[in-house]
Design a protein around this nucleic acid. Structure first.
Lengths: 216, 216, 216, 216
DNA sequence: TATGAATGAGAATTCATTCAT
DNA sequence: GATGAATGAATTCTCATTCAT
């Protein structure tokens, strides 16, 4: 009988102590804002937009719920505020890629970075949660496109080059792979993938990335 | 209590009525159940569990909302009832795989099958929506594990064999890839991936699957 | 207070049925709608839009709060739904006026009718409570205009006649008087006005109306 | 709570600071108090108590919200602080009335004074907004009673004389008229009343007042 | 004094679910 | 079996108020 399971059963509710090492200035607007943003990114990424309540976010951030309205206008506004942050991260990650060899390593590292807070996971998950908002949708698409173009470029094709759909498609398969890994690792305990270290992931990923982008 | 509903209730309803162009029976419990199940799978897959309302599902199915409670006890129950159906499909798909060469083709075909209703996508999306329910979680994990074991087996390793984590890991990367493709195609318009046909996907996927499972 | 009103309180539907303990059909949408509408009119009229909570209204109507959303979409929608009813009432009242002599009597009777529920008061108060809504504002204005035109007509001027602002102005002073009386009687205990009967009000009102409309 | 604020709190603030010619824009408690009071009167009068937020008032006054609590204890306290000011005004107006002829002129002038800030309107509106507060209610009643007694006195009856309800009733009808005019003019654009000048209003009002108080 | 930050109570609204035809 | 009505438990958001600087 499923009725015995509380509707808002929270799985792995991590102790708040890990969140703050503790400079803990109170009455610091900028800091409060960031706490909310961080908590929101984590929750939205792991649970999706609709399944996340603003109270959860506020509690995780250790601040009052009303401050979400104060600083971000609404839940929707908070979600949108999460996007640029993640976008920046993915941008930085993509920009760091110089050649083919670094891509697989980047994916491996991104995938391995601790739990749902790893920048890569956060971004990817975030981008894949629908909020029904037109603007968010567009931004999401832009990020994905930019990212895959960056991958294609690293494989020899200049970014922005419209042609060569084949290479683009292959780059997007690499993106899909990266995404799938992040997804499986963040929401299931599928072993051995879930516990694999960056080092363990690096080799098979390198093979795959090389195959995809170098054309074998 | 959902236990009274057999998990593996026959999924094909009217073998005879398919001859009739428009049966449209009212007061047909089995058919109503089916309509709800189909609508639920579509909605849950594309929007996620939390973002989907039972009213939406009922409306899409063209039946009264109260019937969800009647046939599936609860929203949660309806979600769980969706799982076995998808599980069966993925099971059938996995069982069909005899050798390495068929895997990439299966993934390609699964990915290409129209929209969010393609069996592969439905199953994958379904599995990735957290419902917070313990039982659903376990089922989901079982399916993913079974599926990746099947992939490993096709690559030479007997299913159920506990050893050889390396091959398992590689099989799970293939699963991740399949998942990522389904995800990108179902929730974004990322081109050229979003519009690629099964034929166009087949070649690069074959390269990747071969690399992953054949050990290059 | 009003919270003690039983859930099935009949709102003066049929005077004859008071003999019966209570017809009180449950699950009667139309009746529920009306209960809400009546309660809303009373509350909005006496407390104003902003000071009235939907819970209050629902409690006074003896029904569940959620039904306000169900039947009227929102609090705003409920308010707007109150307007036409009041508009109709004022229309009927205005149409009943044939000659000058009846106006003062109508006002007197309207003012005297019990408490804040008297149709005249309800309408007037309702019209004077701002809801911030553009549409409501326009409707309100139309009603007031129509009403004062009717008064002017009874005093000899054909309704719709654009000219003769003087008569219009005087008719609107009569409206103002009527309004002021309703206002004072419904929200203060200013004696002797508050307790005056229709009969007691009739004479001085007749003098005033005659003066205003008959041109002394 | 607000009980610590005496109902007849002195309304003129700075007996000492008036000696200093220095305007002292910032950090001037008395001035800040005044600014808040003025803004509050305007807002409460035009929107009602419940529909007005303290933030609105503070913004309109150009001061920080927290100062409302500081100077007036609460929103309720601010509202009550508005009353004596208006009461004084209406008192002054009533005291100025010496004979019948001045009444209609006073009402006409009061009604015509620009917009919602005219002393007459402000007072009237203010008195007619329920705040649910017992004490405010009583004050309001006192003002209305005092005012109508003043009118009755001007018509020949000594103020305070308990007898002659008929004259009192007629005086209150004049009050009702005055109120109704203020109401219609401040919250609707009902023409020609809304735009009538004091001069245009004077004549018909004189007729009405004479009729009411002089017994025709 | 003044101000921005923070808080808790309460508001409207949505939604899964149960009830009565 | 099916349907519309009804309900209570959340959820998001607003707002008066208090705190700390």
């Amino acid at each position: 009988m499923t009725a015995s399971i509380p509707p808002h059963l929270s799985t792995r509710e991590d102790p708040a102590s890990s969140a703050r090492p503790a400079p803990q200035r109170r009455r610091d607007a900028a800091n409060t804002r960031r706490l909310l943003l961080d908590a929101a990114r984590r929750r939205f990424a792991t649970q999706g937009y609709a399944a996340t309540t603003v109270r959860e976010i506020a509690d995780e951030a250790g601040v009052n719920v009303a401050l979400i309205s104060r600083y971000f206008e609404s839940k929707e506004g908070l979600f949108e505020a999460c996007l640029p942050t993640s976008v920046e991260e993915v941008g930085r990650a993509a920009d760091a890629v110089e050649d083919l060899g670094q891509i697989s390593e980047m994916i491996a590292r991104g995938a391995a970075e601790a739990g749902p807070e790893g920048p890569n996971q956060v971004m990817l998950m975030l981008l894949l949660r629908s909020s029904g908002d037109e603007r968010a949708e567009r931004l999401r698409l832009n990020v994905l496109r930019g990212y895959s173009e960056r991958l294609a470029a690293a494989a020899g094709r200049p970014a922005g080059d419209p042609g060569d759909d084949t290479l683009m498609l292959r780059a997007q398969l690499v993106l899909a792979l990266s995404l799938g890994v992040a997804l499986l690792r963040s929401s299931t305990r599928l072993e051995p993938l879930a516990s694999a270290t960056a080092a363990e992931l690096a080799e098979p990923l390198r093979d795959l990335v090389d195959t995809a982008l170098a054309g074998r």
